[in-house]
Design a protein around this nucleic acid. Structure first.
Length: 333
DNA sequence: AAGCACTTCAACCGCACAGGT
DNA sequence: TACCTGTGCGGTTGAAGTGCT
């Protein structure tokens, strides 16, 4: 049941006769999409781009709800989707990301360009989940933790030597994730610029449940010139690995403008450097706590700089992560 | 060839959240 | 403040494909 590639060259935008765009009797279709429906949606999206999905359904002449159109486009028709089986690297990445993020499929998918959350979710449920536990991980790091509780306990384990508290599923978790992401990104920069041979893995350290102290921890991580020491696996130091989202994005787009409408990215340099601050802001934005981070950083403006983001060798990271610390799997079932 | 069991994956459902009124 | 609408997410379902007997 491998999905076929979509041939966009065969789609010719229909002459936009508004009367032909109207729905018929108003009865919405369900179930599998026909090639004709696909063609209508693709043509409309290529001509008009994404707008209100209800309007898309209506204006494209589809007897579908907007939600269905969105799903079809995102999961199947989008031109930038990657087709075919998951590569071993993608597979390992999914396992590692799932060990950290749990069933946050959209966040996992965001780090796998061309893959959708639905695709990854299906892949996980049909393939990886069914493997014996000791085969679930290809080489390293944390065992998959299918529940959020396990995820939380894993984090608690990571922090126990610092007498920190359990990070539980709460609004604070977004900030934690932002800080964790930022720490990762910062490390990536640090590692690449210093030529460090340390494992390019994610550090979840000095993190706390309190959003403020968490952000301060993040600042500390980013400001500390001896950052690399954090990765030396001393007592209480735990290494995990999550690839920074933007480094993956830039594998296809080598530059990226931060002068968009996003006010968060208009922040500048104050307490931390450009690079580090950008990581925090981006991560914060991803985890919907941008205002908190912005307040914390109280920054100026990035200006209109197009920032070339660091390239990232996935294979190298995978090799390096073999040294990563393992967090015990805690089965709560 | 037919029937059955299993697998895959597209699509739906229900819920949460944000923004507008 | 309450309600409505749009959007996004994770869980689940069921149709279609595949393999085995």
């Amino acid at each position: 049941m491998r999905k076929p590639a979509v041939d966009y060259s065969s789609f010719t935008p229909p002459s936009s006769s508004s009367s032909s765009m109207k729905n018929g009797n108003g009865k919405l279709r369900k179930g599998l999409w026909s090639p004709e429906e696909d063609e209508k949606l693709i043509s409309y999206m290529l001509r008009n781009g994404q707008g209100c999905w209800s309007d898309v359904a209506r204006n494209a002449g589809l007897q579908r709800c907007g939600k269905s159109c969105r799903l079809r486009w995102i999961n199947y028709l989008r031109p930038d989707l990657k087709r075919g089986a998951f590569s071993p690297h993608e597979e390992e990445l999914i396992v590692q990301l799932h060990s950290l993020l749990g069933n946050r499929w959209s966040q996992i998918a965001a780090r796998l360009p061309g893959r959708t959350d639905n695709e990854i979710k299906n892949f996980w449920n049909s393939t990886i989940k069914k493997r014996p536990k000791n085969n679930a991980l290809l080489s390293n790091t944390i065992l998959p933790s299918p529940s959020d509780d396990q995820f939380s306990l894993g984090l608690m384990y990571m922090q126990q030597n610092h007498q920190h508290h359990l990070i539980h599923q709460s609004s604070n978790n977004n900030i934690f994730m932002a800080a964790a992401d930022a720490a990762t990104c910062s490390y990536m920069d640090h590692s690449s610029s210093s030529g460090s041979s340390s494992s390019p893995s994610m550090v979840l350290n000095h993190m706390n449940t309190n959003p403020t102290s968490l952000l301060m921890s993040c600042d500390m991580l980013l400001d500390d010139p001896s950052l690399v020491d954090i990765y030396n696996f001393g007592d209480g130091l735990v290494e995990l690995y999550v690839p920074p989202l933007e480094t993956i994005i830039t594998s296809s787009n080598t530059s990226m403008s931060f002068n968009d409408n996003n006010s968060i990215l208009e922040a500048g340099v104050n307490k931390v450097g450009h690079h580090q601050q950008r990581h925090i802001m981006e991560a914060a934005d991803r985890y919907s706590c941008g205002s908190d981070v912005q307040e914390k950083l109280s920054c100026d403006s990035f200006g209109e700089t197009n920032i070339r983001l660091g390239e990232w060798d996935l294979e190298e990271l995978m090799r390096s992560s073999e040294t990563a610390y393992s967090v015990p799997h805690i089965d709560l079932q």
